[in-house]
Every structure is written in structure tokens, then in C-alpha cells.
Design a protein around this nucleic acid. Structure first.
Lengths: 208, 208
DNA sequence: GCAAAATTATGCGCGCACGCAACTTTGCGT
DNA sequence: ACGCAAAGTTGCGTGCGCGCATAATTTTGC
């Protein structure tokens, strides 16, 4: 990897880290782009060369590179597995890994509506690679079908995310008291279930 | 209806009309919010009390109230019809009606990337009423399933819209030369087809 | 009718996103 | 080692979205 790309990734990571740290320190709404940029040792203008909005850097510190994982996870399933099982396991697995998130991060995201919207939208990032993974796995399907199914999966994930964040963060009256109300992976699985007939109709229309 | 609501609707309509007219006259990118507001006889600040962004007023002049139509269209299908037929017909019917759009309007939307994104996002507006219509029609389904299915339908519509706008507007080299590349309703139907197994699995799991 | 209450319109200010035009750094061939 | 083209960074200016406080307008209660 060239020096250029290493520097870019270093800057991106520095911005992510600075954004998350500052947001945790003083609350999501009290962080200016200028401050994030300064903490990362970079110009305010440069910040928007890396992230399209103020919230994206904070959320990116948590979601990092989900997109790449999905495609790999779908491709990693044994060839005998049905599309439904492969996709559901892959997507649910995305949200099963706790990662190294600072404990208050998800709570903060659930609290701020702007961050919620941004976090929910990250589910859209899995659609394109998922479509590629589907056409790669099931050669018979056309492009439109693959895109519709992956968009449907993304939409279901968004519904699950939204519901989870809503029930999790909806406790403004008593701060510090948060009930996860069920694990996220289970909620994602439940949200994906109504789509399984559509998924399963692809690769195994006669296998039953 | 009270005087207040009538005035509000009049203002909203005036803003829509002014936005569309100005955008058609001098191009989508050469219209400032201030000008739209002035043409509608209202303060610039008031504009953003009616529309959240500059593009929304323009797009709203075309899409108007799609959301209400979907719920009505789904509910209007005979009770014997399956959920799949009802939803597909209702959504496809939305885009079949040519309406009274000025001829260049859709071309303009297809040309500007910002307007494209905004127009595609309007498909999300049908999700909430569609979810309501689904729980209304099929009493057995839980809320999560209805929301996931309607979100999937909205996602499929977005894919269709995006593809249609892409193939329609992708002719920057030869302006004025536009091939619709197939009717939008047919494309919507095609995009909804992969989801039919999921839709049909709801109300008629034993009817086959 | 009229004054209080509720709702809406407006002005102001701030921060953000981004196009544009310099300027600086990096990669690469000679 | 040198220089040039490509890529990245920065400052500047503009328009936008919106929170907030205030004025104008409609509705309500009497």
C-alpha cells in the first residue's frame, strides 16, 4: 500500500476516533466539525472530504466496515445452504458481534435523533455488496431481482434497527435506565423472517 | 375546513407551483430558495416551515399525495384478492397515471442528481400507510411483519425508480434524446415480483 | 364584539456542506 | 537527484437548514 493511502486511512481513523471521543465527552450535540478537525490535526474543510456530514464520522467509528463483512459472510456459507439461511445468518451475525464499542456509544446514538437516522441509514451500505454476493451465489437470477432482494433485506434491517433504537433509547424520563428489550440479532432475524419466502424462492424452487 | 388550514394548503400549493415553474424555466440548479419564497409571496424562512429542503417543493409538485392513494388503493381491492395482487396493482397504479405533469418535468428530475435522490426517496412515503393498510386487511399479521413487508415494497419501488431514472436520464451526450426504455409501471411490477412469495405467504398460506 | 389563547409568519444568527481556485505533497520516470 | 503530473489539502465564499425569540393572525371563550 502506498504512503498516500496509508495517510488517508490514518486521517480517516483519526477523524473517527476524535469524533467519537468528543461526542462521548460532551454529548453529541455539543461537538462542532471544527473541533473534530482540530483534534485530528486537519483543516475543517478537509473533514468534509472524508465524511459527508457531521454525524457520519461518529457513526462510522462504530459501524466501520460492515459492508465488506456481509459479502464475505454470505460467500462463506457452505454451497449447500439455502439463500435464506445464508443471508439471514450473515446479516444477523453483523449485529451479533459486540466489537470494541465504548459502552456508552450505542446509548448516545439511541438518544440523538440525528445519530439514530444516520446509524439506521448505514444498513443501506450492505445492499450493493449483498446484491453482488447474491448474483455470485445464484447464477440464474437476474440483476434486478438481486437488487430488489438485497434492498428488501436492507429495508428489513432498517426496520429492526429503528425499532431496537426506539425501544432502547425511549427512556428520557429516567436517564441511565435502559432495557435492551431483546437482543438485536434476534430482532434482525425476526424482521428478516417475513422475507424468507422471497429469498427461498430463488435458489430452491423445486427443492422441498 | 377552517380558514387556517385553507391558507396553509394554499401556501403549500403556491410554493410547489412556484418551485416547479422556476425550475423548469431556468434549470433546477439555478433556483434559490429565496426566489421561490418571493414568487409565492412568503418569507424565505417560511419556506422551510413547509418543505425541509430546496428540492422537496419541486418534487412535491409532481408526487403531491401519493401516500394517501396507496392505502386507499390497497383497501379498495376486493376482499378475495390476495395481498400480493392487491399491493402490486396498487403500487403499479401509482405510477401508471400520467397526471398533469408538464412534459419536461420528469426529464428535469432525471437530469439533476439531487432531484433524482429526492424523487426516489418519495417512495418511502408510501411505507407507513401501506403498513397500516396491510394490518387492516390481514388481521392475523403482527406489526413487525407488516412494517417489514411495506418497507420491502418501498425498497423495491425505489430500485425501480432509480433504474428507470438512470436509463431514462443517462444521455448527457445527446440532449433531447430520451428513450423511456419501457414503461415505469411495468418496471415497478417487475421489481415487485421477487417479493411476491413473501407477500403471498401472508394471507393464503394454505390456499394453493 | 372583544380579549385571551393558540397557531403561524418572520427576522436573526449559527453552523454545516460544498464548489472553486490556489497551494502542497506524493508518485514516478528519466 | 531532478522535475513533472497526479492526488490531496486548505482557505474562501455562498447558499441552505433550522433553532430561537418576536410579531402578526386566526380561533376560542365569554
Amino acid at each position: 500500500m502506498s504512503l498516500r493511502e496509508r495517510k488517508k486511512q490514518a486521517t480517516r481513523e483519526a477523524l473517527r476516533a476524535a469524533a467519537l471521543r468528543l461526542a462521548l465527552e460532551r454529548g453529541a450535540g455539543n461537538v462542532r466539525v471544527e473541533e473534530i478537525a482540530e483534534a485530528a490535526g486537519v483543516s475543517p474543510r478537509t473533514y468534509n472530504n472524508y465524511f459527508p456530514s457531521r454525524e457520519h464520522a461518529i457513526v462510522a467509528a462504530i459501524t466501520a466496515d460492515r459492508a465488506a463483512h456481509v459479502a464475505a459472510a454470505v460467500a462463506a456459507r457452505p454451497a449447500g445452504t439455502g439463500l435464506g439461511d445464508a443471508v439471514v445468518d450473515a446479516v444477523a451475525g453483523l449485529y451479533a458481534d459486540p466489537g470494541d464499542h465504548p459502552p456508552g456509544a450505542l446509548l448516545m446514538i439511541a438518544t440523538s435523533s440525528a445519530l439514530r437516522a444516520c446509524y439506521v441509514d448505514t444498513a443501506a451500505a450492505i445492499e450493493a455488496p449483498l446484491a453482488d454476493a447474491i448474483v455470485e451465489r445464484c447464477r440464474g437470477v437476474d440483476r434486478l431481482t438481486a437488487e430488489v432482494l438485497s434492498a428488501g433485506v436492507g429495508a428489513a434491517a432498517r426496520v429492526a434497527l429503528r425499532q431496537w433504537l426506539h425501544t432502547t433509547g425511549a427512556a428520557p424520563s429516567m436517564p441511565g435506565f435502559v432495557v435492551p428489550s431483546g437482543s438485536l440479532p434476534d430482532l434482525v432475524r425476526a424482521a428478516l423472517t417475513p422475507l424468507r419466502p422471497a429469498l427461498d424462492a430463488i435458489d430452491g424452487p423445486v427443492t422441498r
